[in-house]
Amino acid sequence: MTQISPHILDALGTVGPASGTVVQATDVHKWFGRLHVLKGVSLEVARREVVVIIGPSGSGKTTFIRCINHLEKIQQGRIFVNGHLIGYREANGKLVEDREKNIARQRQEIGMVFQRFNLFPHLTALGNVVEAPLRVRHMPEHEARDMGRDLLTRVGLAGKLDAYPAQLSGGQQQRVAIARALAMNPALLLFDEPTSALDPEMIGEVLDVMKALAADGMTMIVVSHEMGFAREAADRVVMVDDGQIIEQGSPDEVFGSPRHERTKAFLSKIV
């Protein structure tokens, strides 16, 4: 349905060099008040790798990816993205929250796509895409608009440049949101259940865009229960339960022959 030509991705430089580690999280702990949500999560994601995180609701998978761009604070552990310690600096062996400007700069490298899209309703589709390049990167306006047009064309929305989010379907809104995240040319894309707020007939068009990105070598961490997407696009599936990674491996390993009882129980519920 949606035509996406991968070579444009390369032309726009959304793909980084093919080696190295993008994300390195070690022993991440997070409390919401007295609730221990993340209990020592460690995860490494290589460049061009696509990691799908699955797990029951409340297991902490969304919280974990929100920690990666510091939308959530962590109380223990370290998260590095492209070698930068995210959200904190170390002072006398203690973690101190970093200055807002530094955190904002780190986030420019990390795109995020939300479950509820979170498009800016007062801006058009193109306005949504060019907002950050214009205001954060100070890109010249004509350049930003050209890029925005290209990106929206690529997610199959060339005809909707001037539409406001309220005039778009859920699937179209989510594709605008992906274009918006790509506009900052991030080294890493985080997807927080990108299709779970969508009507079934719209899930496919969003997954198609994500698959094209994956095929093109974008580094992605995707919280999702879309098994079809995971089988086709994921390099690794990570099972999170009760704030811990209990199992991980290739899609075939995890879906085909899960070792952990809780993984088996979980998979039997969602299939």
Binding site: N69, K101, F114, N118, F120
Partner: peptide, 16 residues
């Protein structure tokens, strides 16, 4: 609240 989060995720400061 998702509006502020989306803006921050794009690298905007609180002020922006």
């Amino acid at each position: 609240i998702g509006q502020m989060e989306a803006a921050k995720a794009l690298g905007m400061t609180y002020r922006q």
